[in-house]
């Protein structure tokens, strides 16, 4: 199996499944809260509708506003191409260096923030300010988690780090702390509970939705798709850090049975991930934004504990 083909398979699978993940989370959440819920594939319909709609562009915006959806989407696609989501050892796996991943994630956040500021409304500015705060203060925790995995696995690329999943976790149990911290980071980076409420548009509590408030039509579709992509990437990454790599494609092993296992496995990872996320979101409340430093320092301390235990045990 050539590494290039693996990259293509991964790209097609993840890019295709991203809206379904969001739909699944919403469906699970609705069921858990005793509501009927929309069908999980509704996001596909919504995206298709948005793509056909006319756009309303604010008069105060500039070229930056138009550049933002493209850059945000492109950073998502770039991450899908380099990270080990469905397959390890794919063509671009050497590029999944943690510095680059953290940098590209930050680049996407920065452009979303710029888009929010360009709309010249209080909503956009508020969302931008908050998103920028979260995105920058979560950074030390991100580095602590990746440093722990790097030390434990001896690899600087995430592609190498996922080797510590499954049974290897038992060898370095300290990585459990890093995993917990990674969950907290994922919640912050994806604007989920308890950091942000993805369901509201008009609360003063909102972060992500406030920034994209002024986008409409195809641009909104792109921004929403990008955040769906980010959520899918994080869910798969979290799953891959916990389960053995035999649930991933690999250039050397390629049989029909394994293929089926990987395909079913990927789907199960997404299903389980979205269920757990929905469960979390129905059982906890959103934190006040001005208590966010507690959450972020908690994430950092847990991640640091993971790193120090990995180093000194």
């Amino acid at each position: 199996m050539s590494p290039l083909l693996l990259t293509v398979i991964q790209a097609v699978l993840v890019l295709g499944l991203a809206p379904l993940t969001v739909g699944l989370v919403r469906w699970f959440k609705a069921r858990l809260q005793g509501r009927q819920g929309a069908v999980p594939w509704l996001p596909y319909v919504a995206l298709a509708t948005m793509l056909r709609r006319e756009m309303v562009i604010s008069e105060s915006t500039s070229w930056v506003f138009r550049l933002v959806p493209f850059v945000v989407c492109a950073t998502g696609v770039f991450l899908v191409l380099i990270l080990p989501l469905v397959s390890t050892g794919s063509a671009l796996s050497a590029y999944s260096h943690f510095m680059l991943v953290a940098g590209v994630l930050a680049l996407g956040s920065v452009f979303l923030v710029l888009g929010g500021l360009d709309s010249a409304s209080a909503f956009g500015g508020m969302g931008s300010s908050r998103e920028m705060t979260i995105a920058s203060l979560v950074e030390p925790a991100v580095f602590a988690v990746f440093a722990a995995f790097a030390v434990a696995s001896g690899h600087a690329t995430i592609d190498g780090m996922v080797q510590t999943g499954g049974a290897a976790l038992l060898v370095t149990p300290a990585l459990l702390f890093s995993l917990i911290a990674l969950v907290l980071i994922a919640l912050a980076e994806n604007a989920r509970y308890p950091v942000d409420n993805p369901a509201t548009h008009l609360e003063l509590t909102m972060v992500h939705e406030a920034m994209v408030l002024e986008y409409s039509g195809p641009y909104l579709a792109m921004v929403e798709y990008a955040s769906a992509l980010r959520l899918t990437v994080f869910l798969l990454l979290l799953a891959n850090f916990t389960v053995p790599t035999s649930f991933l494609f690999h250039p050397s092993a390629w049989q029909t049975g394994a293929t089926a296992a990987v395909l079913v496995g990927t789907f199960l990872k997404l299903l389980l991930g979205s269920f757990l996320l929905a469960l979390l979101e129905t059982s906890i409340v959103k934190m006040r934004f001005y208590r966010m430093q507690e959450y972020l320092s908690l994430a950092f301390v847990i991640a640091l504990a993971g790193l120090l235990l990995t180093l000194f045990l």
Binding site: L51, R53, E54, M55, I57, E59, S119, S121, E214, P218
Partner: peptide, 11 residues
């Protein structure tokens, strides 16, 4: 999508 369809309005 059709790139041309857009209009300008205040925020």
């Amino acid at each position: 999508s059709d790139a041309k369809r857009e209009r300008s309005y205040h925020t």
